[in-house]
Design a protein around this nucleic acid. Sequence first.
DNA 1: TAGTGGTCTAGACCACCTA
DNA 2: AGGTGGTCTAGACCACTAT
Lengths: 252, 252
Amino acid sequence: MASPDDRRQPKYQQIADALKDAIRSGQYGPGDRLPGENDLMATHGVARMTARQALGVLQNEGIAEARKGVGVFVRDFRPLRRQGIKRLSQEQWGSGRSIWSADIEDRTLVVDQVSVTEEESPADIAQVLGVEPGRAVCVRSRRFVLDGKPVLLSTSYLPADLVAGSAITQEDTGPGGTYARLAELGHKPVHFREEIRSRMPSQDEADRLRLSMGTPVMLICRTAFAGEGHAVEVNEMTLDSASYVLEYDFDA
Amino acid sequence: MASPDDRRQPKYQQIADALKDAIRSGQYGPGDRLPGENDLMATHGVARMTARQALGVLQNEGIAEARKGVGVFVRDFRPLRRQGIKRLSQEQWGSGRSIWSADIEDRTLVVDQVSVTEEESPADIAQVLGVEPGRAVCVRSRRFVLDGKPVLLSTSYLPADLVAGSAITQEDTGPGGTYARLAELGHKPVHFREEIRSRMPSQDEADRLRLSMGTPVMLICRTAFAGEGHAVEVNEMTLDSASYVLEYDFDA
DNA sequence: TAGTGGTCTAGACCACCTA
DNA sequence: AGGTGGTCTAGACCACTAT
């Protein structure tokens, strides 16, 4: 309205930009309700679909979030901090503490959707683990829910023969978790590699993490090595990018 | 068509799912053209906007990519590997080599949109650098283009008084780059922290990186420390998530 | 019940690309 | 020139939420 607003831009973009400016200027803060479809139709003189497109832009960029039957609201961003290296220092799991205790402090962590199965190794996992494709692997899958909000899906793969009979094949791996058990089995992880990428979630991922539109996921694939080139675990994690900041600290 | 397809799902989702299945099954490979709006209208008996919505789902998930006046195509994913720790080991920059040479191998890297200015420090940067907000900082901004495709935006902040008169204030920082110059100035970086998050890009970021719909960006904020708590540089990077995999290797 | 966002139709015009 | 995706209209019905 106040700006000249390049006429070459489509209407819905102009409306979206106006809303973004209003948010940047502080006219709408986190959690505030934005003008709805009907408001935009009236104030900008456009059809419903055009107003929807404008609001869709903000949702696709993760700036706003629609609540059915209620309205469209400005989102906020208050992430957890995940310390990639410190959390895997040996003191953490070597002393029987949960890897998670460093992360969560005074929040309520619930682990659900747990499953432990034995399956044929997918080809890409087999390659990283250095076993033949189709070889049996122990698959540990869980979902982590923090203060009622799902934040992380984790699926861990270990060679089945290596972990047979240990607590790793149980839902509760005991004090210190999987890595403490691996150490007891003579395969103490000494080296880790984490590979990170990001993309938009599948429908299934969006459902399980209850992601709103415009929220990407970060994927962490961690490989644990018990010795030179000897991979003992591959852990594929799917993180809600609106819930996490990853941190890596290291020396030159 | 072949599947029962839960009738509670909206039509556009059913169509999108059908297309995704066809892609997963290999019926359409990377780079292949998908059925267009007119095809979907005919085969599924829906209106144009509904067919568009279905194709929009795939684009928003980064699975497909529209080319105006041509069609909608399946995207592929062939990322670069960025080794976060190895690339900053002292041998890399201490010996006058470009930090980038580890990444790119036999590809063509162009750096453009270079600017080196002196500005008042933004509040968040000032806090990390441990200087008063508004204090002068040297701002080095660049875009990296690999084989014609922009992949990374980088903006680096250094205390202006610390780098005054050095090659850091020039566009070409010389052999070994900024870190070699800092070492010569007696502020050799000995420790690094990288913080990573992900979100959908702004319009400006999408333009500068030429991102197609449904492509998030990864943000890396790297802080270089010359000593305990002594931050000498903050580097904010914006990466095309379709072009990069980040890798961090470390010992337990 | 009234208002909201979610889906959908059946048209239309445009800019863009290929041939 | 003909097909493509991009934008837009003016209606409609639905499910959901709050009061």
